[in-house]
């Protein structure tokens, strides 16, 4: 897989189509996001599947937003999985990136990862290889929905109360592109309260994810106290899909929650 990615990026860099490529770089035993601008550097390019598939993932799109803000005229390539590509689509909708400034180089995810994520589409459309896995059901969501309302309350409050308000979920989220965050607004979320007022803190973020979350699960991985955030946001996506027939990253145009119909 990595050979194909390197081959494609080399082609893009040599052809001068892109100014640089946002991918993962493995140097001195560390993996980190990196902007590749020279073909010679591509030896260090990795996709991040080391011991397990998807064990080193980063919100590369988020770096792309910063690059776009700094160099609005330049075009950059970016490494994407299925979820990242949905993220790109949604970032176009939210006017944070434009397709003419981005070349996606996609890789499909293996079934093991797709199942672990409960990913609806574990492969991008722009890909260096054919899909190798099918969409998977969100088992965690199904399990949670099967519980009674009282039990759900107990479980959520238990996990929410572990929150240390580190903002890791927000900081890693590729769809959190705001400069100022509601969750840091003193009037809404008073400073110095620990844990932050529950479940308000988490519900505020959940509401902000409605019509935006592209279900990449990075928040879940980033959370140091293991709050099953992905399950919460999967539900958010599920409600928006069932009530308004809209799926961020799949559907064109704004979320119905951001459009006021003249009926």
């Amino acid at each position: 897989m990595i050979e194909k990615v390197i081959e494609r990026v080399k082609e893009l860099l040599e052809g001068g189509e892109i100014k640089g490529f946002v991918g993962l770089c493995n140097k001195n035993g560390h993996t980190a996001p990196y902007l590749f601008t020279e073909v010679a550097e591509l030896d260090h390019l990795v996709v991040g599947d080391f011991q397990n598939p998807g064990d080193a993932r980063y919100p590369l799109n988020k770096l792309l937003i910063d690059l776009y803000r700094a160099y609005p005229e330049e075009k950059f390539g970016v490494l994407v999985r299925g979820c990242d590509e949905r993220g790109l689509n949604d970032l176009y909708v939210w006017n944070q990136l434009t397709p003419k400034n981005v070349v996606a180089v996609g890789i499909p995810c293996p079934q093991e990862l797709a199942d672990a994520c409960g990913c609806p589409k574990p492969y991008p459309d722009n890909s260096v290889a054919e899909p190798i896995a099918e969409g998977a059901e969100a088992q965690d969501l199904i399990r949670m929905e099967a519980l009674g309302v009282k039990e759900r309350f107990t479980q959520w409050m238990e996990v929410f109360s572990k929150c240390i308000k580190c903002y890791g979920c927000r900081d890693i989220c590729p769809m959190c592109f705001c400069k100022e965050c509601s969750l840091e607004l003193d009037e809404l979320i008073p400073r110095g309260e620990m844990p932050p007022e529950i479940p308000i803190f988490h519900l505020v973020r959940a509401v902000h994810m409605a019509g935006r979350c592209i279900d990449c699960g990075l928040c879940n991985e980033a959370c140091p106290v293991d709050i099953p955030l992905r399950t919460l946001y999967k539900k958010v996506g599920d409600i928006v899909y069932r009530k308004f027939n809209y799926r961020p990253g799949f559907d064109k145009g704004k979320s119905p929650l951001n459009v006021l119909e003249n009926k």
Partner: peptide, 21 residues
């Protein structure tokens, strides 16, 4: 059409609240 926005949010919030118990 302000109430159209309200209607959508209420629909969404009801389900979200239900989900967190």
């Amino acid at each position: 059409y302000g109430n159209v926005a309200t209607e959508k949010r209420i629909k969404f919030m009801k389900q979200l609240l239900e989900f967190v118990g």
